[in-house]
Computed example of a mutant assay.
Amino acid sequence: MLIQEGDKRTPATDLMLASILAFVAGGVNSAGFLAYHYFSANMTGNVSMASDHFAVAQFDLALGFLAIVVMFIFGAFTASVLIEVGRRQRRSNIYALTLILEAALLIIVGIAVTLSPQPPNGVLIVGLLSFTMGIQNAASTRISGSRVRTTHVSGVATDLGVGLAMLLGISSNPDKLATMLRLKLHLATIVFFALGGVLGVLGHQNFGDVSFCVFAMPLIILSVRYLR
């Protein structure tokens, strides 16, 4: 699941990867919003909120939302650099290492905030969470040839609508099977993102910021078998 890239991957491996990573992204996103009132995986919403606050001269809030967006971009940049270096060194486990980095950061954030004697800065914490989401989205996009995008729900929902139109409007389409497989992938991404969101809220209500550590566990379980 974390070795083969692009067209070498099967629909089943893409589906499993999308489900696991979307679940983690949904959980982290919802838990972070519940705790700090910023989204770590919704860059469309963050840019929109930054624009709204700039318009009413609330520059400190606007810059906070933009900082989260920048951290997401930096996370994607970091993951892409790591992947490129790993591929040049012919490390077949580079994607596993990248997701382990994401998991380690989630654990560090969860433990650090839980043990901190002072109330944490919301922009800083969500910025770090956004950094991990950028890592995840870049890794899933690169390994799947852009088929799996686990934090980009707006784009996935658009693709789902387009696929449904193609499926219903072109019954003789020779690519009907491929369209069905893409629809299944998009639907699973949305469903597991939503499921992760529900559990993210429940987890944070019951365990606080330790819930970020909990959402690191699926990444570790997924990646550990590929590390050797």
Results as ranks from 00 to 15, higher is better:
M1D: 13
Q4A: 14
Q4E: 12
G6W: 01
D7L: 14
K8P: 10
T10Q: 07
P11E: 04
A12F: 13
L17W: 05
A22S: 09
F23V: 08
A35M: 11
H37W: 10
S40F: 04
M43W: 07
V47S: 13
S48W: 14
M49I: 15
F72R: 00
F74N: 08
S80E: 12
L82P: 10
R88M: 15
N93L: 10
I94A: 09
I94N: 09
Y95K: 04
L97C: 13
T98K: 05
L99F: 07
I100C: 08
L105E: 07
G110D: 01
A112S: 14
L115C: 10
S116I: 04
S116G: 06
P117C: 01
G122W: 00
V123M: 00
L124R: 04
I125K: 04
G127E: 00
G127V: 01
L129A: 00
T132A: 06
M133P: 02
T141K: 10
S144R: 02
S146D: 13
V148T: 05
T150P: 08
H152P: 11
H152Y: 13
V153Y: 09
A157Q: 11
A157W: 12
T158Y: 10
D159V: 07
L160I: 07
G161D: 07
G163N: 02
L167F: 15
S172L: 11
S172A: 13
D175S: 09
L181A: 13
L181G: 14
T189I: 03
V191E: 05
V191W: 05
F193S: 08
F193Q: 12
L195W: 09
L199K: 06
L202K: 12
G203M: 00
G203R: 00
G208I: 00
D209I: 08
F212Q: 01
C213L: 04
V214M: 06
F215P: 00
M217F: 09
I221R: 05
Y226S: 05
L227C: 04
